[in-house]
């Protein structure tokens, strides 16, 4: 295996007494799509700012393309494309002006940028908006423009912090499609998300983070296999009854999680389990059999749901 593009060992970042990132290790290989999954406040964005060679670390080592980002900030950043959590486009300028000035920050020639803009507008599906001021764009368009801006320098690594947070489902799907194309082109992606479906769609490999630490690492399918059962039966008996029946139900499955509004029963065969429950004389008000997801992995690892 070739040397990883990103190598992180014992990375720690403290803000005063608060430890935002607590000694994490991971590698990202070339062409890989790597995710940091965790709830808000898990330390994902802080980690991303350090990977982006803009924020300093308290301890540990970080190597990006064999260089310490803290010592060689400009050199490292020349290879990165960054899509921050909040769009920080220049609202007063037009779509194409935003791409143009950003390209100039990389010292790229005007000719190169002009050609690149055409390609990026097509990629971001913003050809018709090229001369429109950014403030007039929808949230999804701004997001696509921010991603296009991050690609203007043809980066080796694209860092995306919560790429689809705040977007409606349709805008998210368009964005996923665009990111999937980048992945197919071999761009190395590093992204943070607190959406398990996003992580499952886009990541080859991911780490689950909570309270600044890494709880688990693997491929989405591998993590689900390792930390959860094949299927999940979700049952509701009404908020008061849930607690009453919980002890009895717990004996009927491999593992059970009691949430405020429902019970999650982990099993290899959800339908069979539901039948068993009904046989035992318990009638759920609603029931749902589904495949295990990363949400279940997170619940198993931390005892909490991803979005609270």
């Amino acid at each position: 295996m070739s040397k990883p593009l990103i190598s992180v060992r014992g990375l720690t970042k403290k803000f005063g007494d608060f430890t935002a990132v607590d000694g994490i290790d991971f590698d990202v290989a070339k062409g890989e799509s790597f995710g940091l999954l965790g709830p808000n406040g898990a330390g994902k964005s802080t980690t991303m700012r350090i990977l982006a060679a803009t924020s300093t670390r308290t301890s540990g080592t970080v190597e990006i393309l064999d260089k310490d980002p803290e010592l060689f900030g400009p050199l490292v950043r020349a290879h990165l494309g960054v899509v921050p959590q909040q769009d920080n486009l220049d609202n007063e300028l037009t779509v194409s002006e935003n791409l143009f000035i950003y390209g100039r920050y990389f010292g790229l020639s005007k000719k190169f940028i002009k050609n690149k803009i055409e390609e990026l507008l097509e990629f971001a599906q913003l050809e018709e908006k090229r001369d429109v001021k950014v403030e007039a764009l929808s949230g999804g368009m701004k997001r696509r423009l921010t991603i296009a801006r991050g690609l203007v320098s043809e980066p080796d690594i694209l860092l995306l912090d919560e790429p689809t947070t705040g977007l409606d489902p349709q805008a998210r799907h368009i964005l996923w499609d665009r990111l999937f194309r980048l992945k197919e082109q071999g761009v190395t992606l590093v992204l943070t998300t607190h959406f398990m479906d996003e992580a499952e769609q886009l990541c080859d490999r991911l780490v689950v983070m909570d309270k600044g630490a890494i709880m688990a690492e693997g491929s989405p399918a591998g993590l689900i296999k390792q930390y959860s059962s094949k299927e999940v039966l979700e049952v509701r008996f009404g908020s008061d009854r849930n607690k009453e029946v919980a002890p009895q139900l717990a004996t009927m499955c491999e593992r059970m999680e009691t949430l405020p509004d429902r019970l999650l029963m982990y099993t290899e065969d959800g339908e069979a389990l539901l039948e068993k429950i009904t046989h035992a004389g318990m009638h759920a008000t609603t029931s749902l059999v589904r495949r295990s997801s990363l949400e279940d992995v997170f619940l198993r690892l931390t005892g909490r749901t991803l979005i609270e």
């Binding site: 920050y105 010292g107 790229l108 320098s153």
Partner: peptide, 21 residues
């Protein structure tokens, strides 16, 4: 990697890029 990125040049003229924006 984009071969058109000349980091030493950006280190010399970066402030002018910002000023022009």
């Amino acid at each position: 990697m984009n071969t058109g990125i000349d980091v030493p040049q950006i280190q010399r003229f970066g402030a002018l890029y910002i000023a022009s924006a």
